[in-house]
Computed example of a mutant assay.
Amino acid sequence: MNTQSIRDIFAENLKKARRAKGWSQEELAHQADIDRTYVSALERRVYSASIDVVDRLAQVLGLKASDLLRDKDYP
């Protein structure tokens, strides 16, 4: 059984998707029109993102919001 929180899952998926695009946190923040320090805090699990921010980040990454929240280890 996986014990990762939704915040952990989101943070990992966000970082993987950002790196797959070859973007820095600054570039992702610029594309999503949010502060770079906020992107950093999300990836470090300091803050929880609102559903609107999850959707905005997913859109600029070319994903669905559910992709950023999906536990890859869950069947």
Rank of each mutant, 00 (worst) to 15 (best):
K16M: 13
D55F: 08
N13E: 01
A17I: 05
R7L: 03
E12S: 11
R45E: 07
Y47C: 00
R19S: 11
Q4P: 03
V39P: 00
E27T: 14
D71P: 03
W23P: 02
V46Y: 10
D33V: 12
L14V: 05
R44V: 05
L42I: 04
Q25P: 08
Q31S: 10
E12M: 09
V53D: 00
Q4R: 12
L61D: 06
V39R: 02
R45V: 11
K64Q: 15
I9C: 00
T37S: 09
S40K: 12
D55S: 10
L42D: 00
V46W: 08
I6R: 01
A20D: 10
S5G: 07
V60C: 00
K21Y: 07
H30C: 10
D67C: 04
Q31D: 03
S5V: 02
Q4M: 13
G62S: 09
G22I: 08
L57A: 06
Q59Y: 08
D33H: 15
A32L: 13
V46L: 10
A49E: 04
L63H: 08
A29E: 04
R44S: 05
Q59M: 10
V46K: 12
A58H: 01
V39L: 03
R7H: 06
S66A: 13
A11W: 03
R19N: 15
D52G: 13
Q4C: 04
A11I: 03
P75G: 02
E27F: 12
D67Y: 11
E27I: 14
A20Y: 07
Y38W: 08
K64D: 14
D73F: 14
V60Y: 02
M1S: 08
R56W: 06
K64E: 13
T37Q: 14
D35Y: 12
L42R: 10
R7D: 03
K16W: 11
R56N: 05
D73G: 10
E26M: 12
R70F: 04
R36Y: 09
A58N: 01
Q31L: 12
W23Q: 05
L69T: 07
R7K: 12
S50W: 07
A11D: 01
L57G: 04
G22C: 04
A49C: 05
Y38F: 12
V54L: 07
E27K: 15
D33E: 15
S24D: 10
L68G: 01
T37V: 14
Q59F: 07
T37H: 15
S24N: 13
I9R: 00
P75D: 12
Y47K: 03
A29K: 04
Q59A: 15
L61F: 09
E12K: 13
P75T: 03
S24C: 13
